[in-house]
């Protein structure tokens, strides 16, 4: 039987701060829904279809569509501010 040695775990603690949970939304009827498009192919077309569904079937009042410059770069502050100002809910895309 081999001796016992000690070795380090190579991981690191997560220093992130947990954000407060989003406030609940009481349905979508009459609300403004924003989309932040991650600029990946076809996300814009899916947004168009999804927006149409939300308006026609669920009574969403209006949709706001914004597009990032690139998938690999965060949305700029002006887009975030604009969406926060206008919208009750944001749907954002991640991944292919």
């Amino acid at each position: 039987m081999s001796a016992i040695i000690h070795v380090f775990e190579p991981t690191a603690p997560y220093g992130r701060k947990e954000m407060a949970a989003c406030r609940a939304l009481d349905g979508l009827r009459g609300k403004v829904v924003g989309f932040i498009d991650n600029a990946k192919p076809n996300f814009n077309h899916m947004v168009d279809d999804l927006a149409e569904l939300l308006v026609s079937r669920y009574g969403v009042k209006k949709t706001v569509k914004c597009t990032k410059r690139s998938p690999g770069i965060p949305a700029p502050e002006d887009i975030l501010a604009d969406v926060a100002r206008q919208c009750d809910l944001v749907i954002t895309g991640s991944g292919d």
């Binding site: 039987m1 081999s2 001796a3 016992i4 040695i5 000690h6 070795v7 380090f8 775990e9 190579p10 991981t11």
Partner: peptide, 16 residues
């Protein structure tokens, strides 16, 4: 002083 978490393991390269 080192602060990473330590594991006690059998001193066997293949086991580790």
């Amino acid at each position: 002083k080192l602060s990473a978490d330590l594991l006690a393991v059998e001193d066997d390269l293949e086991v580790i």
